[in-house]
Amino acid sequence: MSTLHLRYFARLRERFGRDAEPLGIPAVPYTVADVIALLVARGGIWADELGGPRVFRVAVDQEMAQLDTPVHDGAEVAIFPPVTGG
C-alpha cells in the first residue's frame, strides 16, 4: 500500500468540504487517471465534479499533470478548477 497526499483548492475545496486528505493506493504503477477513478467511485459530489463534463486540473508534486502522469508513494496530488489569477 502507498499513500498520496491529496489537496483541493477553491470551488472544489468547498464542494468536497476539505482542503487535504491522505489516500491509500495499491503499491503498483498508478497514474492520475487511476486516482481520479478512485475518487469518482465514491459517488455523489465526487462523481459529479470529477466523473462528468466539468473541467478540472491536477498537479503532481506542484507541477501541472495530465491523466497519464504517474504518481508515486508520498506524492502530493492537487485537484482544482482551471485557474483565474491575474
Binding site: 485557474v83 489569477g85 491575474g86
Partner: peptide, 13 residues
C-alpha cells in the same frame, strides 16, 4: 501577464 492568467494557481472568488 497572459501566461500567468492560465498557468499560475490562483483562483478568484
Amino acid at each position: 501577464i497572459d501566461a500567468l492568467k492560465t498557468d499560475a494557481p490562483f483562483w478568484k472568488c
